[in-house]
Design a binder for these strands. Structure first.
Ligand SMILES: [Mn+2]
Ligand SMILES: [Mn+2]
Ligand SMILES: [Mn+2]
Ligand SMILES: [Mn+2]
Lengths: 135, 135
DNA sequence: GCATAAAGTTAGTCGTTGCTAACTTTTCGA
DNA sequence: TCGAAAAGTTAGCAACGACTAACTTTATGC
Protein backbone atom coordinates (compact mmCIF):
# COMPACT_ATOMS: atom_id res chain seq x y z
CA UNK A 1 0.00 0.00 0.00
CA UNK A 2 2.31 2.68 1.35
CA UNK A 3 5.03 1.84 -1.17
CA UNK A 4 2.75 2.56 -4.13
CA UNK A 5 1.80 5.98 -2.78
CA UNK A 6 5.19 7.62 -3.14
CA UNK A 7 5.83 5.95 -6.49
CA UNK A 8 2.72 7.69 -7.81
CA UNK A 9 3.94 11.07 -6.53
CA UNK A 10 7.33 10.50 -8.18
CA UNK A 11 5.63 9.54 -11.45
CA UNK A 12 3.47 12.68 -11.27
CA UNK A 13 6.61 14.80 -11.01
CA UNK A 14 8.25 13.06 -13.95
CA UNK A 15 5.45 14.22 -16.28
CA UNK A 16 4.95 17.62 -14.67
CA UNK A 17 7.37 19.73 -16.71
CA UNK A 18 6.09 18.28 -19.98
CA UNK A 19 2.50 19.04 -19.02
CA UNK A 20 3.25 22.62 -18.00
CA UNK A 21 5.31 23.28 -21.14
CA UNK A 22 2.80 21.97 -23.68
CA UNK A 23 0.07 23.90 -21.86
CA UNK A 24 2.11 27.10 -22.03
CA UNK A 25 3.03 26.50 -25.68
CA UNK A 26 -0.61 25.90 -26.64
CA UNK A 27 -1.73 29.01 -24.74
CA UNK A 28 0.95 31.17 -26.36
CA UNK A 29 0.09 29.92 -29.85
CA UNK A 30 -3.61 30.57 -29.17
CA UNK A 31 -2.78 34.08 -27.97
CA UNK A 32 -0.06 35.28 -30.32
CA UNK A 33 -0.10 32.84 -33.23
CA UNK A 34 3.28 31.28 -32.44
CA UNK A 35 5.44 30.34 -29.52
CA UNK A 36 9.07 31.44 -29.20
CA UNK A 37 11.60 30.25 -26.62
CA UNK A 38 11.56 33.72 -25.10
CA UNK A 39 7.83 33.38 -24.38
CA UNK A 40 8.61 30.33 -22.26
CA UNK A 41 11.60 32.03 -20.62
CA UNK A 42 9.23 34.74 -19.41
CA UNK A 43 6.43 32.35 -18.49
CA UNK A 44 8.51 29.98 -16.36
CA UNK A 45 11.13 32.46 -15.15
CA UNK A 46 14.03 30.25 -16.20
CA UNK A 47 16.95 31.00 -18.52
CA UNK A 48 16.89 30.57 -22.29
CA UNK A 49 19.36 27.70 -21.96
CA UNK A 50 17.00 25.84 -19.65
CA UNK A 51 14.12 26.30 -22.08
CA UNK A 52 16.34 25.01 -24.88
CA UNK A 53 17.22 21.87 -22.92
CA UNK A 54 13.63 21.22 -21.96
CA UNK A 55 12.35 21.69 -25.50
CA UNK A 56 14.97 19.19 -26.69
CA UNK A 57 13.56 16.64 -24.24
CA UNK A 58 9.98 17.34 -25.34
CA UNK A 59 11.07 16.85 -28.96
CA UNK A 60 12.82 13.58 -28.03
CA UNK A 61 9.54 12.51 -26.39
CA UNK A 62 7.44 13.37 -29.43
CA UNK A 63 5.50 16.29 -27.95
CA UNK A 64 6.93 19.19 -29.99
CA UNK A 65 8.77 19.82 -33.25
CA UNK A 66 11.27 22.61 -33.87
CA UNK A 67 13.50 23.82 -36.65
CA UNK A 68 16.56 25.92 -35.91
CA UNK A 69 15.59 29.51 -35.11
CA UNK A 70 11.94 28.76 -35.81
CA UNK A 71 8.94 28.91 -33.47
CA UNK A 72 8.00 25.83 -31.41
CA UNK A 73 5.18 23.65 -32.75
CA UNK A 74 3.15 21.02 -30.95
CA UNK A 75 2.69 17.52 -32.36
CA UNK A 76 -0.76 15.91 -32.32
CA UNK A 77 0.26 14.16 -29.10
CA UNK A 78 1.49 17.46 -27.68
CA UNK A 79 -1.81 19.13 -28.49
CA UNK A 80 -3.79 16.33 -26.87
CA UNK A 81 -1.66 16.51 -23.72
CA UNK A 82 -1.99 20.31 -23.66
CA UNK A 83 -5.77 20.18 -23.94
CA UNK A 84 -6.10 17.59 -21.18
CA UNK A 85 -3.67 19.44 -18.91
CA UNK A 86 -5.39 22.77 -19.46
CA UNK A 87 -8.81 21.35 -18.69
CA UNK A 88 -7.61 19.66 -15.51
CA UNK A 89 -5.79 22.85 -14.47
CA UNK A 90 -8.94 24.93 -14.98
CA UNK A 91 -11.06 22.56 -12.91
CA UNK A 92 -8.57 22.57 -10.03
CA UNK A 93 -8.27 26.37 -10.10
CA UNK A 94 -12.05 26.89 -10.25
CA UNK A 95 -12.53 24.43 -7.43
CA UNK A 96 -10.08 26.29 -5.19
CA UNK A 97 -11.85 29.56 -5.94
CA UNK A 98 -15.21 27.97 -5.18
CA UNK A 99 -13.75 26.94 -1.82
CA UNK A 100 -13.31 30.61 -1.05
CA UNK A 101 -9.59 30.81 -1.81
CA UNK A 102 -8.50 34.08 -3.43
CA UNK A 103 -7.90 33.98 -7.20
CA UNK A 104 -4.23 34.78 -6.70
CA UNK A 105 -3.66 31.94 -4.24
CA UNK A 106 -5.81 29.62 -6.35
CA UNK A 107 -3.57 30.37 -9.33
CA UNK A 108 -0.42 29.62 -7.36
CA UNK A 109 -1.58 26.49 -5.52
CA UNK A 110 -3.33 24.95 -8.54
CA UNK A 111 -0.09 25.08 -10.54
CA UNK A 112 1.42 22.41 -8.29
CA UNK A 113 -1.73 20.59 -7.19
CA UNK A 114 -2.99 19.88 -10.73
CA UNK A 115 -0.32 17.23 -11.35
CA UNK A 116 -1.35 15.14 -8.35
CA UNK A 117 -5.10 15.12 -8.93
CA UNK A 118 -6.34 11.69 -10.01
CA UNK A 119 -9.26 11.07 -12.31
CA UNK A 120 -11.41 10.18 -9.32
CA UNK A 121 -10.60 13.40 -7.46
CA UNK A 122 -11.07 15.45 -10.62
CA UNK A 123 -14.52 13.94 -11.04
CA UNK A 124 -15.35 14.75 -7.43
CA UNK A 125 -14.31 18.38 -8.03
CA UNK A 126 -16.42 18.56 -11.18
CA UNK A 127 -19.43 17.09 -9.41
CA UNK A 128 -19.13 19.47 -6.46
CA UNK A 129 -18.78 22.49 -8.77
CA UNK A 130 -21.98 21.39 -10.50
CA UNK A 131 -24.12 19.78 -7.77
CA UNK A 132 -22.65 21.16 -4.57
CA UNK A 133 -20.93 19.61 -1.57
CA UNK A 134 -21.91 15.98 -0.77
CA UNK A 135 -24.42 15.74 2.05
CA UNK B 1 2.62 37.38 -11.61
CA UNK B 2 3.01 34.32 -13.82
CA UNK B 3 6.75 34.14 -13.18
CA UNK B 4 6.28 33.79 -9.43
CA UNK B 5 3.82 30.93 -9.79
CA UNK B 6 6.24 28.36 -11.13
CA UNK B 7 8.97 29.47 -8.74
CA UNK B 8 6.63 28.61 -5.88
CA UNK B 9 5.96 25.15 -7.32
CA UNK B 10 9.71 24.56 -7.70
CA UNK B 11 10.30 25.70 -4.11
CA UNK B 12 7.55 23.34 -2.92
CA UNK B 13 9.34 20.44 -4.58
CA UNK B 14 12.67 21.41 -3.05
CA UNK B 15 11.27 20.92 0.46
CA UNK B 16 9.06 17.95 -0.38
CA UNK B 17 11.46 15.08 0.29
CA UNK B 18 12.53 16.58 3.61
CA UNK B 19 8.92 16.94 4.72
CA UNK B 20 7.98 13.40 3.77
CA UNK B 21 11.09 11.94 5.43
CA UNK B 22 10.76 13.72 8.79
CA UNK B 23 7.07 12.81 8.82
CA UNK B 24 7.90 9.13 8.18
CA UNK B 25 10.71 9.17 10.77
CA UNK B 26 8.44 10.70 13.43
CA UNK B 27 5.68 8.19 12.67
CA UNK B 28 8.09 5.25 12.84
CA UNK B 29 9.56 6.43 16.14
CA UNK B 30 6.05 6.90 17.54
CA UNK B 31 5.11 3.41 16.40
CA UNK B 32 8.20 1.33 17.09
CA UNK B 33 10.34 3.46 19.38
CA UNK B 34 13.11 4.03 16.82
CA UNK B 35 13.59 4.54 13.10
CA UNK B 36 16.07 2.50 11.05
CA UNK B 37 17.07 3.10 7.44
CA UNK B 38 15.27 -0.09 6.48
CA UNK B 39 12.00 1.35 7.79
CA UNK B 40 12.37 4.19 5.30
CA UNK B 41 13.44 1.83 2.50
CA UNK B 42 10.15 0.01 2.94
CA UNK B 43 8.07 3.16 3.42
CA UNK B 44 9.27 4.99 0.31
CA UNK B 45 10.08 1.97 -1.88
CA UNK B 46 13.59 3.17 -2.68
CA UNK B 47 16.94 1.46 -2.17
CA UNK B 48 18.99 1.62 1.02
CA UNK B 49 21.62 3.68 -0.80
CA UNK B 50 19.01 6.28 -1.70
CA UNK B 51 17.84 6.49 1.90
CA UNK B 52 21.46 6.90 3.02
CA UNK B 53 22.02 9.80 0.61
CA UNK B 54 18.79 11.49 1.62
CA UNK B 55 19.50 11.14 5.34
CA UNK B 56 22.92 12.72 4.76
CA UNK B 57 21.18 15.72 3.20
CA UNK B 58 18.71 15.98 6.06
CA UNK B 59 21.61 15.88 8.52
CA UNK B 60 23.45 18.57 6.55
CA UNK B 61 20.27 20.65 6.76
CA UNK B 62 19.91 20.19 10.51
CA UNK B 63 16.76 18.07 10.52
CA UNK B 64 18.16 14.74 11.76
CA UNK B 65 21.17 13.37 13.62
CA UNK B 66 22.72 9.96 13.09
CA UNK B 67 25.65 7.99 14.39
CA UNK B 68 27.15 5.18 12.37
CA UNK B 69 24.96 2.08 12.49
CA UNK B 70 22.59 3.76 14.94
CA UNK B 71 18.89 4.64 14.51
CA UNK B 72 17.91 7.98 13.01
CA UNK B 73 16.95 10.76 15.43
CA UNK B 74 15.10 14.00 14.71
CA UNK B 75 16.44 17.37 15.83
CA UNK B 76 14.08 19.88 17.45
CA UNK B 77 13.73 21.50 14.03
CA UNK B 78 13.05 18.10 12.48
CA UNK B 79 10.33 17.37 15.03
CA UNK B 80 8.68 20.74 14.43
CA UNK B 81 8.71 20.20 10.65
CA UNK B 82 7.36 16.66 11.10
CA UNK B 83 4.46 17.84 13.28
CA UNK B 84 3.50 20.63 10.86
CA UNK B 85 3.77 18.32 7.85
CA UNK B 86 1.71 15.59 9.48
CA UNK B 87 -1.04 18.00 10.47
CA UNK B 88 -1.22 19.52 6.99
CA UNK B 89 -1.24 16.05 5.43
CA UNK B 90 -4.11 14.92 7.66
CA UNK B 91 -6.20 17.95 6.78
CA UNK B 92 -5.68 17.46 3.04
CA UNK B 93 -6.49 13.76 3.25
CA UNK B 94 -9.60 14.33 5.38
CA UNK B 95 -10.75 17.04 3.00
CA UNK B 96 -10.45 14.74 -0.02
CA UNK B 97 -12.44 12.06 1.80
CA UNK B 98 -15.10 14.62 2.75
CA UNK B 99 -15.32 15.46 -0.96
CA UNK B 100 -16.44 11.89 -1.54
CA UNK B 101 -13.10 10.57 -2.79
CA UNK B 102 -12.32 7.00 -1.71
CA UNK B 103 -9.87 6.59 1.20
CA UNK B 104 -7.34 4.83 -1.08
CA UNK B 105 -7.38 7.60 -3.67
CA UNK B 106 -7.35 10.25 -0.95
CA UNK B 107 -4.24 8.64 0.52
CA UNK B 108 -2.47 8.62 -2.85
CA UNK B 109 -3.49 12.09 -4.07
CA UNK B 110 -2.87 13.80 -0.73
CA UNK B 111 0.73 12.59 -0.69
CA UNK B 112 1.56 14.88 -3.60
CA UNK B 113 -1.04 17.61 -3.08
CA UNK B 114 -0.04 18.39 0.53
CA UNK B 115 3.20 20.08 -0.52
CA UNK B 116 1.43 22.61 -2.74
CA UNK B 117 -1.29 23.67 -0.31
CA UNK B 118 -0.74 27.22 0.98
CA UNK B 119 -1.74 28.45 4.39
CA UNK B 120 -4.76 30.15 2.88
CA UNK B 121 -5.98 27.01 1.13
CA UNK B 122 -5.33 24.92 4.23
CA UNK B 123 -7.46 27.33 6.24
CA UNK B 124 -10.24 27.09 3.65
CA UNK B 125 -10.13 23.28 3.94
CA UNK B 126 -10.27 23.45 7.72
CA UNK B 127 -13.19 25.87 7.63
CA UNK B 128 -15.16 23.75 5.16
CA UNK B 129 -14.56 20.59 7.21
CA UNK B 130 -15.94 22.42 10.24
CA UNK B 131 -18.61 24.79 8.87
CA UNK B 132 -19.47 23.31 5.49
CA UNK B 133 -19.17 24.54 1.94
CA UNK B 134 -19.35 28.34 1.43
CA UNK B 135 -22.73 29.52 0.24
C1' DG C 1 30.64 -18.76 19.68
C1' DC C 2 30.33 -18.39 15.13
C1' DA C 3 28.39 -18.50 10.55
C1' DT C 4 25.29 -16.28 8.05
C1' DA C 5 21.71 -13.02 7.34
C1' DA C 6 20.39 -8.35 7.80
C1' DA C 7 21.56 -3.69 7.93
C1' DG C 8 24.42 0.07 6.80
C1' DT C 9 28.21 2.44 4.14
C1' DT C 10 30.67 3.91 0.16
C1' DA C 11 31.83 4.52 -4.68
C1' DG C 12 30.36 5.31 -9.07
C1' DT C 13 26.64 6.17 -12.63
C1' DC C 14 22.56 8.27 -14.72
C1' DG C 15 18.65 11.55 -16.05
C1' DT C 16 16.38 15.80 -14.87
C1' DT C 17 16.34 20.47 -14.25
C1' DG C 18 18.51 24.26 -13.20
C1' DC C 19 22.63 27.65 -14.08
C1' DT C 20 26.56 30.79 -16.65
C1' DA C 21 29.39 31.95 -20.44
C1' DA C 22 30.60 32.17 -25.17
C1' DC C 23 29.09 32.02 -29.46
C1' DT C 24 25.91 32.46 -33.82
C1' DT C 25 21.83 33.88 -36.18
C1' DT C 26 18.00 36.81 -36.88
C1' DT C 27 15.48 41.03 -36.41
C1' DC C 28 14.90 45.91 -36.42
C1' DG C 29 15.48 50.73 -36.29
C1' DA C 30 18.35 54.82 -37.34
C1' DT D 1 21.60 49.08 -45.30
C1' DC D 2 24.03 47.88 -41.75
C1' DG D 3 25.09 47.61 -36.94
C1' DA D 4 23.38 46.74 -32.51
C1' DA D 5 19.98 44.33 -29.86
C1' DA D 6 17.34 40.31 -29.36
C1' DA D 7 16.86 35.57 -29.85
C1' DG D 8 18.70 31.09 -30.17
C1' DT D 9 22.44 27.51 -29.72
C1' DT D 10 26.03 25.06 -27.53
C1' DA D 11 29.30 23.67 -23.98
C1' DG D 12 30.21 22.91 -19.43
C1' DC D 13 28.87 22.78 -14.54
C1' DA D 14 26.12 21.45 -10.29
C1' DA D 15 22.52 19.61 -7.03
C1' DC D 16 19.09 16.31 -6.43
C1' DG D 17 17.30 11.93 -6.28
C1' DA D 18 17.28 7.74 -8.15
C1' DC D 19 20.08 3.30 -9.21
C1' DT D 20 23.74 -0.98 -8.84
C1' DA D 21 27.65 -3.16 -6.95
C1' DA D 22 31.07 -4.04 -3.57
C1' DC D 23 32.17 -3.72 0.86
C1' DT D 24 31.80 -3.50 6.28
C1' DT D 25 29.40 -3.85 10.51
C1' DT D 26 25.87 -5.63 13.47
C1' DA D 27 22.38 -8.97 14.83
C1' DT D 28 20.54 -13.65 15.08
C1' DG D 29 19.90 -18.44 15.40
C1' DC D 30 21.81 -22.76 15.67
MN1 LIG E 1 -0.44 23.97 -15.68
MN1 LIG F 1 1.65 22.92 -13.15
MN1 LIG G 1 4.05 13.94 0.56
MN1 LIG H 1 4.34 18.18 -6.74
Amino acid sequence: MAERIHKRTRDDHASEVAEDYVEAIADTIAEKGRCRSMDLVRHFAVTHATVNNTIARLQRDGLVTTERYQPIELTARGRRLAAASRKRHEIVQSFLEAMGVSPQTAAIDSEGIEHHVSKETLQAMTRILKDGWPT
